[in-house]
Structure formats: structure tokens, C-alpha cells
Amino acid sequence: MSKEQKEAQAVMKQHMGLKASQRLSNTIVYIILIIMSIIWLVPFVAIVLQSFRNETNAAGELVTWRVSYWLPKKWGIENYRSLFVDTSFPRWYLNTFIIALVQCVVQTIIVLCMAYTLSRFRFKSRGKLMRFMMILGLFPGMLTMLILYRVLSDLNMTGEHAVPGLILVYVASSGMGYYVSKGFFDTIPKALDEAARVDGATRFQVLYKIILPLAKPIVIYTILTAFMAPWGDFVFAAYIAHAKEAGMNVAVGLNSWLDKDHIVKYYTRFCAGGVMVAVPVSILFMCLQKYYVEGVTGGAVKG
């Protein structure tokens, strides 16, 4: 073997070694990812399994409580049927849907107004305003629940009539969440605005014709998050609904089934309800995932 050949072989060997080590590390990564995926999926698989439980116990009662085994002994959609026929779940669903729909229109408009203004205009009190809002944000919002409840009950917007009350409060405070969108607007070059202004466009035209089309991802992100938030809101909604079934949203209603007195009768229906909420919301989310990722990575980090 000549010297060159030997060298070439050595290089090859080293290369192969690298390859092998890379293959090894990739295998480890695959194993970790697979284990993670299982852990991440298990709860969702489990809740679906529980929701299809349709078995009776020795005494002939339908098993509606929590059991410690995974697979239903008998499958069926009884839980879903009874969910829609025997309980207030449809009402809760409708309540939440109405709130979500109004939210995603009004909140989007408000958030975009705030974000655009604070990103583009340099008016006198801008810095003060932003600092003030930041300080406001440091207060635990839960503190205001008490007084908001009293104000809303004076307006007859609590209990059974909680839906308009919830909408009012959500909408009114939605201006606080402008950071993400502002971060995104900041990334759109200001030169565009200035060029349009030089050409004689008003501020309104600049927003409508130039900025909004460019800001499509963040608009969709805002709509998406505004739509999803009401499905998960729990504390405030519970407080305003004040244990009146007609005024609850899904989160409050389903949670009320898990307390000591109800869980025996409602556990499997809770699972079914959870699936009913999770499926449409997550499908919507998955469809618009791209925009969500853009919003999170673009606006959220820089804030």
C-alpha cells in the first residue's frame, strides 16, 4: 500500500467514524422523540378512550365514574348522546361559541388599532402610555374580578345573563394585549409608510392599503388567539356565572362536573365534553398553525 492510499484510508475511516457517531446520535434523538410523542399523546388518547366507555357494572349501573383501567369494556356513544340531551352542555357550547365569535372580531380590531398606533405614531404621550400599560400589566388581573362582578350585576349581566357581561369585559380589556402585534408591526419597514405619505396618502389609507395586507400573518394570529381564549377562560367566567348553569361557558360547566358531588355521575361525560371542545378548536388551530408560529416567533419574542 502506498503512502497516499494509506492516508486516503485513514480519512475514509475517520469519515466513516463520524458517520457512525452521527447515526448513533440520530438514533438516540429518534428514541427520545418517540418517547416524548407518546407522553404528549397519552392524555389525549386516554380522554378519547374514556369518553367512549359504555359499560355497566355488576349492579347494572352505567359506569359514569372514574375507573383505573384504560380500555372501555364496552364501547358506545352513550356519553355523547346524553351530553347533548340530558345536560346543559349545548347551552355552554353555544355561550362559548358566541363569545368566541364576537371576541375574534372586536378584539382583533382593538388589538390591531393599539398595536399599529403604538408602533407607527410618535405622539407626545406615547412613551408614558406604554410604560403605564406595562405597569398595569404587572397587577394581578384577578384582583379586579370582585368589582367587575358588582358592576356587571348592577347592569344585570351576571348569572344567567353572563354572556354579554363576559364579552363586555373581555373586549374592554383586550387593548392590553397589543405587545405581540406591535412587535410584528415594528418589523414592517417604516420607509413604506413614508413613501405613501409623500405620495399624499392619509394615515388611514396607509393603514388600510399598505400595512394591513403586509400584516396578514399577525392579523390571523390575533383572530386565532382571540377565538381560542374564551374556550379556556375559567376563573373570571366562573365568577361571573355565579353557579348559574345558563351563564356558564364550557370550561366552567365541565369543571363543575369534577367536584365531589358530581364526579361520580358525570366523569365520562366530562371526557366526552372535553373531546367535543378539543376537536374543533384543535382542528382550527392546526389549519392556521403556520400563522400562529409566525406570530409567536415574530412578534412574541421581541415584544
Binding site: 375507573v67 371542545v277 388551530f285 392546526m286 398553525q289
Partner: peptide, 29 residues
């Protein structure tokens, strides 16, 4: 991989949290 993980963002937190809390109950699954 990404989609599997993102599922926890997509599903309203109250469902996943409440259910996980039930999974880990003393006589849970």
C-alpha cells in the same frame, strides 16, 4: 414531531389540565 407537540397548545388548557389531574388521581388510570 412538531405537530404532536403543538397539540397541547391547540387543545384548551382547562381540558388537558383537568384531565391530567384526574389521570393522576389515587384511583386514576
Amino acid at each position: 414531531w412538531r405537530t404532536v407537540l403543538v397539540l397541547t397548545i391547540a387543545i384548551p388548557q382547562f381540558i388537558s389540565l383537568l384531565f391530567v389531574s384526574q389521570m393522576f388521581a389515587k384511583n386514576g388510570i
